[in-house]
Design a protein around this nucleic acid. Sequence first.
DNA 1: GTGAAAGCGCTAACAC
DNA 2: GTGTTAGCGCTTTCAC
Lengths: 337, 337
Amino acid sequence: MSSNVTLKQLADELNLSVSTISKALKNSYEINEKTIARVQALAKKYNYRPNRMALSLKNSETKTIGVIIPNILNYFFSKVLLGIEEEANSKGYQIIICLSNNQFQKEAESLRLLSDGSVDGFILSMARETQAKEYNDHFKKIIGQGYPIVMFDRVSDKIECDKVIVNDFDAAYNATSFLLAQGRKKIALISTINDLNIGKFRINGYKKALKDKYSYNNDELIISIHNKTAYHTAITSLFDDHVDIDGIFATDNVSAITALKIANSRGYKVPEDIAVIGFSNDKISRLSFPSLTTVSQSALDIGKNAAKMLIERLNKRNSNDFKTTIIETNLVVREST
Amino acid sequence: MSSNVTLKQLADELNLSVSTISKALKNSYEINEKTIARVQALAKKYNYRPNRMALSLKNSETKTIGVIIPNILNYFFSKVLLGIEEEANSKGYQIIICLSNNQFQKEAESLRLLSDGSVDGFILSMARETQAKEYNDHFKKIIGQGYPIVMFDRVSDKIECDKVIVNDFDAAYNATSFLLAQGRKKIALISTINDLNIGKFRINGYKKALKDKYSYNNDELIISIHNKTAYHTAITSLFDDHVDIDGIFATDNVSAITALKIANSRGYKVPEDIAVIGFSNDKISRLSFPSLTTVSQSALDIGKNAAKMLIERLNKRNSNDFKTTIIETNLVVREST
DNA sequence: GTGAAAGCGCTAACAC
DNA sequence: GTGTTAGCGCTTTCAC
């Protein structure tokens, strides 16, 4: 921390008391106008700023939000963070960031560390491990301690708190329907997030869309990938086993683009012979060859809404009417469909 | 902030004084062992954690680092952030993050907001606007207030502080030399960061490499792009004007991949007819078609080093021996060369 | 072995 | 119109 000027130093220099200085800086009606002017001039000269820690201690509020994110290298989460930061800053809040790296241990530790009065509340998306193993107690404990939480995207039914999600079922349903409307006859789903709730919702959306289309007479074709190193082999097998495949919906863009590359190298024409849709409207979807149609989740809005909800809750404590906000997705159509 | 237990509450419940509790929790030799045991048991029961704001106020240190980043959607900066977070956490520091969005105004405002005792020091990379317009005063002011700064990647000669950079000159020299060693006869440089120092260093590295290769007899061919929307047109013109181009070194991956796409669409064979090298070892470089050779900046190490340097400086104030750490780059060769 | 008191920087109720 | 005091939660010095 720095050697900033304090009220006391200003008071000494002007031969006034600390409380007079404090009031003068707030333009209190109690204080003589000349005094106010003198005080404010000196404060300006020394660039006085009230010490944030002293204020926090006094007011029992930090004006700081703890944000816990599974993976900062993921474009979606970065963009949500951008939204949180914008909204929080505009309301006078700062954000402390912790990265769980998708590990339960680190998520719980971050929660523990920040629940020492460092923040007023939390915005978070569950670590993959936490959701896969259905750990909840660390969240409940924090909430029990009086810290409000807003969860986004990867949320848990078991936790009572505000939430911001997209309708993953609808998103997948619409994406699959888009392929069906093009007359695609054999559509596969590639999922790399089978262990997450959102992954399950997306699978269900895909299944329902196929079922609703009476003229579609192939079985569901679902490839589940659990390992980063397995993308290429798994998708290669998909093409080997189903040469007549003409549509792919992937729950992430890395597998979507891997599929595109394999299709390219096998001489499929995209989108004539095969269409591919990814998930998350990130940079790579614009730069792939051909560019990738994706489901856009409006990550920025998710972040802004989450911040807005948390700040609202901080201002009207003790109410139990938790809300879940659903952010609309939309299909951004590019060259791959 | 939450309703955490305080020393006072523990003291009341045990009919002891606050100071006894405080000492007991620290296993002070002054305190009776039985008392220690009783106190610690109760503290554990109530999940006591010392209030961070009170500690900060008392100790005049926040154990928090302010990080100001130009663009969180940029993979390089995200990865640096990851490095900072890892190193800082391991040393017991938290990080408050601010995004300048490459605007001077927002950068200066973030600095101003956090210099109220919220953080112990700063890690930052200059906003594009700040560097282009050579604004420095806001940094100097903060340093004058006693806040140490560590700058990384986009740094300024005008500011005396610790720095972490890569050798952009060498990186560009080596990348260009790699193309020359392949026998490329007409190598273009595409720069989208001409307004940044690192952009200038990269151009110089490219120029020097061409000069050092006696057998190379084409002129320098430098395309400078200043506008996000102009990538495609500018690079298309490059190909129009120089059909015999056989090598491209780009200072960023979006233009490198745009070049790849244009080359693909014009029937060039990559890398036989033309080779392309990008900058920053991010996800898209692996997923492009063909995958892109890039200069890897070891972003994680940059982040870790920056955090390490700042924390070291915080522990030995008042010394003026500022260091600049140079992180090695290396060329990651993929299919595009 | 335990407790009282001061002080970190600030605000606000209450003197004067 | 200005000053005194108490207190936010904690640590530490000094008394008892």
